[in-house]
Simulated scan of single mutants.
Amino acid sequence: MDHALHFLSPFYARAAADGRAHARFLTPRDLPALIDLEREKWDDVQAASQDELRARIDAYPDLSIGAFCARSDRLLASLFMRPVADDFHRRVQTWRDCASLPAPRTSSTLFGVSLTSRDSAGVTALLRFFWPYALKRGCRHIYLGSPIPGLRDWLAAHPGARAEDYVKARRAGLPLDPQLRYYGSRGFSKIVSVKPNYFPHERSLDYGVLLRGTVPLSSLAPLWASLPLISVRRATLPLARFL
């Protein structure tokens, strides 16, 4: 089994257990719900505008995903991605750099422009939904930029320390920062770089950390490319029992 199969365990174990959320591709009809979620989870500087959200959907409709409550159909989480060059992280400094790089003609790498959630079941459903699509596209890696909200207080308690020291610090083998622990539990455990002035975030002192997740079973790319999507879905679903 692929070493990165732990990436799947949260969304198969939890989503199968409660079925609280379902995911699908987003359309412009979802803009009011997206705006509501943005305003709840981000401040005025951080939140995407309606025009920005529409542009993301228009540019990559097959990389714009929403998760909805199975009972009320309320939007629980959104995920927007875009293709990037495999070595893009060496040529970027800020979130806007990552989000505006020209898309390569071919790439096995995606960048998560935004992951916004009001319920962990939504994130679970997003990842579960997208896995077969990622395999069919030939995706190998997905990158996310994470804030590190514990940084400001930690530096205040550790004069002379650096942001990199905080990112590397561990307790019981896990990152000190709660956001890094959260993403690590979903497979984004590879810390690629620490970026100053990455994104406006007061508690992170505007630092961000680029994280990388490996798409489970992506090493079998020729197999997935040869199969129709419905077959990829059928092949991946039963793997939950082995996690």
Rank of each mutant, 00 (worst) to 15 (best):
P83W: 02
K41N: 15
I148E: 13
R171Y: 05
P228Y: 02
P104N: 12
P238R: 09
Q93H: 12
Q179A: 08
P104A: 14
K136E: 11
A70R: 09
E164P: 03
S78P: 00
G66K: 06
P238V: 05
F242D: 07
P159D: 12
A240N: 07
E164W: 04
S231P: 00
H141R: 13
G150I: 08
T124K: 00
Y198S: 01
G19Q: 15
A67C: 10
A235G: 06
P61A: 11
F129E: 02
Q50Y: 02
K168V: 00
D119I: 05
P228W: 03
F25P: 01
Y133P: 01
S117K: 07
T27N: 13
I65V: 15
D51N: 09
R203Q: 14
S146F: 09
Q50R: 15
R234Q: 13
P10I: 04
H6L: 10
K190D: 15
L37Q: 10
A47G: 06
Y198V: 00
E202T: 09
C139S: 11
F88V: 10
F188L: 13
R90E: 15
R96I: 11
K168Y: 00
D30H: 13
T109I: 10
Q179K: 02
W224Y: 13
A161M: 06
K41E: 15
K136T: 07
V167F: 07
S9R: 15
R171T: 05
T94H: 05
L176W: 02
A15R: 04
Y12D: 10
L115P: 00
S117M: 08
R171K: 12
L180S: 05
Y183F: 14
N197R: 11
D2F: 04
A48T: 05
G112L: 11
A47E: 09
D97N: 07
R105S: 15
